[in-house]
């Protein structure tokens, strides 16, 4: 009998305390409730959640909060692209007309161990910026890909990898356009091109033709054959380097075929 009373007393005490604290919590959650913009949560749901930082904020949550306070623009989210911009506008109850071109990063250099000339054997830290500080890199060409893989280290989605020749290539299917690789690259050889670009000029050298020929067999020599072969293709040769104006939608196949150093290549997701 005494045992039963003791048991009931214990259950009653603990249960009573539980109910009392429950009531306190319930009341205080009503009284002390933090006013939260429910749009922030909905915005977070439409953002990709990669926290890449291209928008200039610490992550998707900070960007969502900035959006609700009208601090920033709808189109800052590159990974989300047009879809995210439209969804953001919908959540915020604004109608906008966006026309965003999805851009992806790509390495504009194909001068690898078999094609480019190297001037010294590098054995230091495996980092492009460290190598660049030493005589501008171990390649004779001062503009090319240094191949130490700093971009691979910063890519948040593992879109960048080495090919068989020790060069770097970006998988355009995986790339989320965060531009982290663009900002880490010391030679600025990684540039943004439209996702649906058919070809790219895989060279970054602004040296004159004969100089380029000396140190790289796949470098752009500025011969202007591309702009003659494909006049509608948007090839602009400036500073001895062909650059494609992708707003021109004309044919670029002829130029690719006739390029003497074969540095106009297809924008595939995988290379060799």
């Amino acid at each position: 009998m005494e045992l039963l009373v003791n048991l009931l007393q214990a259950v009653g005490t603990v249960g009573g305390l539980g109910i009392a604290f429950g009531v306190i919590l319930a009341v205080s959650s009503k009284l002390l409730a933090v006013e939260k913009d429910e749009r922030v949560e909905r915005l977070e749901n439409v953002l990709p959640g990669l926290n890449c930082g291209i928008c200039g904020y610490a992550g998707c949550a900070s960007y969502a909060e900035a959006l609700t306070q009208n601090e920033t623009e709808f189109t800052k989210c590159a990974p989300g692209g047009e879809k995210a911009a439209k969804a953001i506008a919908e959540v915020l109850g604004v109608s906008i007309d966006v026309n965003m071109v999805k851009k992806v990063a790509q390495v504009h250099c194909r001068g690898g161990k078999t094609t480019a000339q190297y001037v010294f054997d590098y054995q230091g830290v495996k980092d492009c910026n460290a190598l660049f500080a030493m005589h501008g890199g171990n390649k004779a060409c001062p503009y090319g890909c240094l191949g130490q893989g700093s971009c691979i280290a910063v890519c948040p989605v593992n879109a960048i990898s080495y090919d068989a020749d020790g060069l770097v290539w970006v998988d355009k299917e995986k790339c989320i356009s965060c531009e982290k690789c663009v900002s880490v690259c010391p030679t600025h050889v990684i540039k943004m091109i439209p996702y649906d670009a058919d070809v790219l000029v895989a060279c970054n050298s602004i040296d004159k033709g004969p100089v380029v020929k000396k140190y790289c067999s796949v470098g752009c020599i500025g011969c202007k054959i591309c702009s003659k072969q494909s006049p509608e293709g948007g090839f602009v040769v400036d500073n001895f380097l062909a650059v494609i104006d992708y707003s021109q939608k004309g044919d670029r196949e002829a130029a690719m075929e006739k390029c003497p150093s074969h540095c106009i290549i297809r924008n595939k997701s995988q290379i060799n």
Partner: peptide, 16 residues
């Protein structure tokens, strides 16, 4: 380990 080279890189990146 290339300790000095790495530390030098760190300073370089801070300057950058």
């Amino acid at each position: 380990l290339p300790l000095v080279q790495m530390l030098r890189l760190g300073k370089l990146m801070l300057r950058k």
